[in-house]
Design a binder for these strands. Structure first.
Lengths: 157, 157
DNA sequence: CACAATTGAATTGCGCACAACTCAATCATG
DNA sequence: CATGATTGAGTTGTGCGCAATTCAATTGTG
């Protein structure tokens, strides 16, 4: 019943492979959506969705940034970020300016309102972490595994 | 530098919590999206998206099922499933019938074309699992952790 | 039996993710 | 310096996920 650390996957029967890989991606998405639900509730008062919260966090941490840089950090392209930032802008949290040196680039600034929102967002991480029910070590292990997984999948795809 | 297995989370500073929880959900979504990319490529020839593939797998495994049952298995509601099944139907893979005993229920059947697609889908799981770069044991551990995580988050949200 | 509550599907609306494309600004090469 | 390639944003279209609503069918209760 013990398995070698790197078993010969090609030797496993198709239906076992099917179960394994199905459940990995499936349980990954299940966890991801469960997070979404918890964040949705935690961010409701702030009027932010989770992706919007991520964008705000990048700005809270690094100050004004070009759209391109935000996209690099969040692994999102302009097709996702442009409308998202537009919503943040119409919510009055953010302001966009064409860069003077490179007129293709648009730099995103926090407004006073956007900067002030940080205070109200501070308790969110704690409530989320507590909701996971995981120990810190489990969180670290999970991240390590997910990091390798994403890297492998990225190279493959 | 060593930590107890279940540390007192309330004792950690805010900014450390912030990093931890941020990266968990973030790396979860990153892995989930990386999977999406790999599946997208693997399923391109079949003309299926990953959620459509999941629905087909349920039908391949269990035969004709009511929409409700498919939704329970995939954790999807009718708002997501109805249009998805409609697309599968217009692709000729699936047929929908009102149940005679309960006229609210709609049972989804595979067409011959839909059943035949299973053959072409068989090599997909193997290529996906290989792309993960994880050992079988790591896959099992990951699933276990994700299962607990999802359960905790579900209870919390 | 009548009527209220519940259930199963579908629809609408919103936001995210991604592909494909447009367009202007910038860069690189000859 | 002129021209072709590349880059940064934005737009369009498709599909997923979720909330909220609608509607008919069914169930439960008095």
């Amino acid at each position: 019943m013990t398995r070698p650390p790197t078993p010969d996957l090609t030797g496993l029967p198709d239906r076992e492979l099917l179960k394994l890989d199905h459940q990995v991606c499936f349980s990954l998405q299940a966890a991801s959506r469960a997070f979404g639900g918890v964040y949705r509730e935690a961010l409701r008062d702030l009027g932010l969705t989770y992706p919007q919260y991520l964008a705000m966090m990048v700005l809270w941490e690094h100050g004004p940034l070009p759209v391109k840089t935000i996209g690099d950090r969040l692994h999102l392209d302009s097709g996702t970020l442009s409308p998202l930032l537009k919503r943040l802008e119409s919510a009055g949290l953010v302001r966009r300016e064409r860069g003077p040196q490179d007129e293709r680039s648009v730099t995103v600034h926090l407004t006073d309102s956007g900067a002030g929102l940080r205070e109200r967002a501070l308790p969110v991480p704690r409530s989320i972490l507590r909701a996971t029910g995981l120990s810190v070590q489990e969180v670290l292990d999970l991240q390590e595994t997910l990091g390798r997984l994403t890297a492998s999948l990225g190279r493959a795809g």
